[in-house]
Amino acid sequence: MGFEKCHPAVNFIYFAAVIAGMILFQHPVFLLISFSCAFLYSVKRGGWKVLVFDLILLPLVAAFALYYSSYNHFGVTVLRQNFIGNNMTLESLVYGFVLGFVAAGVMIWFSCVHSVFTTDKVVYLFGKVSPRLSLFLTILLRMVPRIKKEAKRINMAQRGIGRGVNQGNVFQRLRNCVRIFSMLITWTIESLTVSSESMRSRGSSLRGRKAFSIYRFDNRDRAYVIGVFASLTVILMAVMLKQTDILYDPRIVMTPITSMSYLFYAGYTVFCLMPLGLELWTEYRFWKARKAL
């Protein structure tokens, strides 16, 4: 009911911006804001299965930080020496955590992208760039599952005369596999020939192809885009004021946190929470409308 019902272009702009932010900002506060928002949003969309996935990422982040700091020895704050005599430094450990969180955060954001972006939307966005490209993509999307299904069917037919992939000794099985594969190729070519005839018969080779879409850009999409750009402006100000900058080598150096900084943190939080907020808001509205009956 939430973000996935927005126009694909809005989805695309938002995710591009939020993932770029995740990668670019190595400032721990910004990092943690984006990471936790991604965490919340993915759990909201995917339920407990995603929660487990997200939680598994956390120890992996720690493991990566340990691994990283035991191979990189920059920094001045020595914590201890490891068993081969190399310095373990605070800076490299922290930087290891930062890299780990960036990677984990990007993965979580991508899991959200995956649940919001259906293939339709991808095809639509490609269609905006080039209708032919999107046509190619949609043919591909149809062919791949069809080939799988046909492989199953051929195997079934072959099993009926004792020549399936799991019948006979190892060599026979191998040969049966090769046979089925070769049939599959013939079938695919044959089937694509008919498809291309059907396409040409409906004028696919004419000039001036347009892409049809079932999406419309409504007021909510406009409001959302305005929100995205307003918060992006705030973030851009933070970048210009060097609020997002941080150095880890040789020692951790960052712009001092002032009361202004909290404004930027708030702006970034709003930005990262936008899809979750929209989802909750719609659910609230729905709940209220139901209650009013």
Binding site: T119, T138, S198, M199, R202, G203, S204, R209, K210, F212
Partner: peptide, 15 residues
């Protein structure tokens, strides 16, 4: 040709 019903309906019109 396409993978969705609505898209297939529009295919000729797109062309």
């Amino acid at each position: 040709v396409t993978d969705k019903v609505w898209h297939e309906l529009a295919f000729g019109l797109e062309s």
